[in-house]
Design a protein around this nucleic acid. Sequence first.
RNA 1: GCGCAUGUGGCGUAAUUGGUAGCCGCGCCAGACUUAGGAUCUGGUGGAGCAAUCCGUGGGGGUUCGAGUCCCUCCAUGCGCACCA
Length: 986
Amino acid sequence: MEYNFRDIEKKWQQHWETSGAYTVSNNSTKPKYYVLDMFPYPSGAGLHVGHPLGYIASDIYARYKRLKGFNVLHPMGYDAFGLPAEQYAIEHGIHPAVSTEQNISNFRRQLDNIGLSYDWSREVRTCDPQYYKWTQWIFLQLFNSFYNRQTNKAERISVLIEAFKKEGNKNHPVPDSNYRLPVAGKKGNQFSAEEWNSFDEYTQQSILMEYRLAYCGYGEVNWCEALGTVLANDEVVNGVSERGGYPVVKKKLRQWYLRITEYADRLLEGLERIEFSEAMKEMQTNWIGKSYGAEIDFALKGLQEEKLRVYTTRPDTIFGVDFMVLAPEHELIEKITSPEQKQAVENYIAYVKSRSERERMAEKKITGEFTGAYAINPFNGREIPIWISEYVLAGYGTGAIMAVPCGDERDHKFAKHFGIPITNIMGAHYTGEEANPTKDAVLENSGFITGMVMREAIEVVISKLEEMGIGVRKVNYKMRDAAFSRQRYWGEPFPIVWKQTPAGAIAYPLPESELPLQLPHVDSYKPGPEGEGPLANITAWTSRNLETNTMPGYAGSSWYFLRYMDPKNDQAFCSREASDYWGQVDLYIGGTEHAVGHLLYSRMWTKVLYDLGYIGHDEPYKKLLNQGMIQGSSRFVYRLQWQQMCKGEVDVHAFPQVFISKGLVDRLEKDDKDVQVLLRENIDKILFANGLTIKPDQIVTTPLHVDVNIVDGVTLAIEAFRKWRAEFAQAWLILEDGSIANPNVKSQEGAYICGTEVEKMSKSKFNTVNPDDIIQKYGADTFRMYEMFLGPIDQSKPWDTHGIEGVHRFLKKMWRLFYDEQKGKIWTDEKPTAAELKVLHKTIRKIEEDTERFSFNTAVSAFMVCVNELWELKCHKKEILQPLLILLTPYAPHVCEELWHLLGNTSSVLDAPWPVAEEKYLVESSKEYPVSVNGKLRTTINIALDAPQETVEQLVLSNEVIQKWLGGNTPKKIIYVKGRMVNVVV
RNA sequence: GCGCAUGUGGCGUAAUUGGUAGCCGCGCCAGACUUAGGAUCUGGUGGAGCAAUCCGUGGGGGUUCGAGUCCCUCCAUGCGCACCA
């Protein structure tokens, strides 16, 4: 009876499905545990072997926890709205709903193949109206809430309105301090109760919009023309779109935003309470980018009514300010520029506008222009020239800085470039060569703070500024509010109706009873007028004055982990009862690519829902585990380039396809004369065989990606290669040994060696490996264990199919502990020996430890060690083998369930009692101690574990080998670490 | 440029706390059973040397009885951020 994994896996997968083995209840006396995968976007390409790495890890952990007696929630779903489906629709005319449905069923089939223990009755799809009804509902909660800075949490907008009616906004200043009330003749942004009550509806609603957690406003956004939509900051990488790599430009557009900046501090603080990797926490911390400093108002020379407000983290350097720099967009520029400089400044601004984000990032030229204006240093009255330059960003701080060249690298370069004199306020700490950003220097040339250490002067200066009324302490964040609308079709519609008033349009929420606001069917995905989405083309939509934007991809994924808890609820997004029972996700597994996107947004949504009292916890994930990426290992063949070789004088199509083996290509590149001669002879032969007589000038090859699946290691399967592409059917190959593989002659000796490179796994590089193929060949259990065996879960590594044999052999070997091919059943009911019990209990302990710390690779290795040792002991005893099956169940569930039943069990191994490692089988009385002399290992001596120091010293000193190394000297001391080692110091 | 992480046999890796470096697997070598095997089994496999032994965890230095592990420094690779004042 042999290990027939195909039948076994099919049988149990069906059985588990029909018996509902993975269905989880919200009512259980067992403790709960929630294991979650980052749900996938169901792309048309399907899964490759890289995707399941995290799914397998989470599945092992979920199954392990279940065996340990937990009620485990382990759900799966699809992040099904998004750009690619819509792009596909534009190109192929297939409705996104249709292609998404197809992709999902393909994903599901692939996932099922792996034997993952998901409770599919809880599946969610973000594009399902029953799901996005609640995404829209949560959006309305965001829209109807504001962040109360006094109580430090989100509250109903009605609370704010009540406050405005009674006291104006003196206790709730506008979040954006630069906001100006849309009231004629009104300066500043404060209003009284009377004023509020006198405002018209439009004014009131416009003001409220400034407070809402989801709001609509005009702003600079990342506009991607090719995709026809706006993108969030985290969706733009190096100035191009993350998806597709299209150019992105800054554009002013009406957009919806999430006021995530109000949560900056709580998002930072929350990081201290959750288990994310340090790297992940740091990425979020950097993204939030909190900095402490001061805003300082500088008087302007000859301009009484205006002030120049700058933001600095280094008020201590105020005596070192040699110039000011404004962002080119700064509103003060127009007012302060001198007539002489007007033209130059205008030219400069035009130049800045002409440059794309990408150009700015690529070339770091120092550019700028003098405005002709001067600010006044409040402490010594010094006149400070005001410049403009693109290195100062309009969107951060006040869009203006005080430049201190001796302390800041950029300011220093700017000063040197434009010949601005530099004041040294830190003596020997500044060399004149480069800026020194230290805070530890003693200040010089600094008026009332001269002699102070910079670090301490910061506080002194801020206090002084506040006293003088020209400065305030200020905290700034790099993080911006998140752009929350897309000018696209395939996303959640906003439940918003626009009401036209004479003063302007007002956004009103749709009543909850009208949710879900269903996405209408469209025939065309073309953008609407004026940068609006395809919904703007639908009259049934626009006639109701509905919002035409849709929500971004991260809307649905910001709360899906809650829906799994109560997926069928049509009264609420998730009942409080369900969310209180399941609480936080105990273990969340996924890639690092969502560090600042999804993980930040979902943390914010959770905090809002918590503030509003809908859930009882304010961090969604207790522990995050990042799996590494499995890269592709690409293979290359090297094709002769006739065009270059024959200077274009020939018809390329007349030439045969000729490929040269990697080793020869390498030697050719090193100008190896022998290889050149060899190749020329071979090429002549091939040309002759094809009836051609041309002599090429030089030998040129181009590497081409070749499908990894037709390469064994680095050796090309030549027949498969000829079949792979019609154009290669008649290919000639010059093999590694210099011989020729002729397409018309069947068998040949010698091998064609391919080049290799590690790259991202992708269809276009022909380096994807489909898990279906691996599972077909080796089975799901082997596949699962092999993915884990590859290395630590958090490490990235290239896929290599080769080592899988070892894991497969292990499973076959384990099977043979139970059943022999000839003899059949060989397991027995005999009593185990001490040695066998020791092997088992050692393994129990090791597997438990390794699984708990997510060290799955060492756990697989421990299983191999265990089976090897039992094999050596010729142990076929049920009492040993049965507990081993339980241990292995999380890793290789199918084979374990089969053997479990063959041992005579009638219930499922999925709920078997986890064995307990018993110390009594593991205790040892003595140990083979390593004994070293001066730290160098010389011998080992068997010593009783409870031996005292004197006995050990005697034993060691009487040892022949040690005596030899002592050479008659008396040791200075003997170090004896009980249970570890002995070291003799001479 | 700044920040973080990682460097161990031919390869993937192991060594939970400073305590026998190389477990497990791939590959390779030898043998057994076979008509045959890319099946299975047995043994070997860091380098040098007949051996005793010596050398070995990216390079250099340090702490320690003892360092892959701790500290300093340099190098390489990967990831993240990139004018955030």
